[in-house]
């Protein structure tokens, strides 16, 4: 009796291991954090682009409006891809776009905006990348959609056609 059970069990065991590995192969090993969650926005203060003032997050995100905070840099190539969509989103009435200029030089950033036009209502400066960390961002570009001081959507990587229409859908 015992002689039969062990083979069957071990074969069964290896089959399960096989199945799990097989399933794991279909998944990607690149990490994407949970995207759908509602969270309070972090509190921080940041310098304003080309101005010598510092603002608190409480002063920036006010009222019932939607905000889109977009982490960008002039040296970031995919940022150029999403720029057009940002320009289109600028047209939206109840959406304000806040830029978070990530580890950039002021001169390069100005040139970038002059070349591609400026979609931002306000630009904050993140000189050493710490504000992006507070937001839970780990690279450029990333964007967060905010409503009533809550993050309602997190976008990793450039905004594309689909994401654009999704944002449009949410804010209307």
């Amino acid at each position: 009796m015992k002689f039969k059970i062990i083979p069957i069990l071990s074969i069964l065991f290896f089959f399960i291991v096989f199945a799990i590995f097989f399933k794991a192969l279909q998944k990607t090993s690149f990490y994407t954090p949970n995207i759908n969650f509602e969270k309070e926005i972090p509190s921080f203060s940041a310098k304003i682009f080309k101005m010598d003032i510092e603002k608190n997050s409480e002063e920036i995100f006010i009222g019932n409006q939607f905000y889109l905070i977009n982490v960008w840099a002039s040296w970031c190539v995919p940022c150029r891809e999403e720029h057009n969509f940002l320009m289109k989103l600028k047209e939206q009435k109840n959406l304000k776009i806040i830029g978070l200029n990530y580890k950039d030089k002021e001169k390069n950033a100005s040139n970038f905006l002059r070349e591609l036009k400026n979609p931002y209502d306000q630009i904050l400066i993140d000189e050493n990348g710490t504000i992006a960390i507070e937001w839970g961002a780990y690279g450029v570009p990333e964007s967060f959609l905010i409503h009533k001081r809550k993050i309602i959507k997190k976008i990793i990587g450039p905004i594309n056609e689909n994401l654009y229409s999704e944002i449009e859908g949410i804010i209307q």
């Binding site: 580890k103 050493n128 990348g129 710490t130 992006a132 960390i133 507070e134 780990y138 690279g139």
Partner: peptide, 13 residues
């Protein structure tokens, strides 16, 4: 990397 360098600053803070 950029991310790691920033995170180090944040942790120190």
């Amino acid at each position: 990397s950029e991310f790691a360098n920033s995170l180090k600053i944040v942790v120190q803070k």
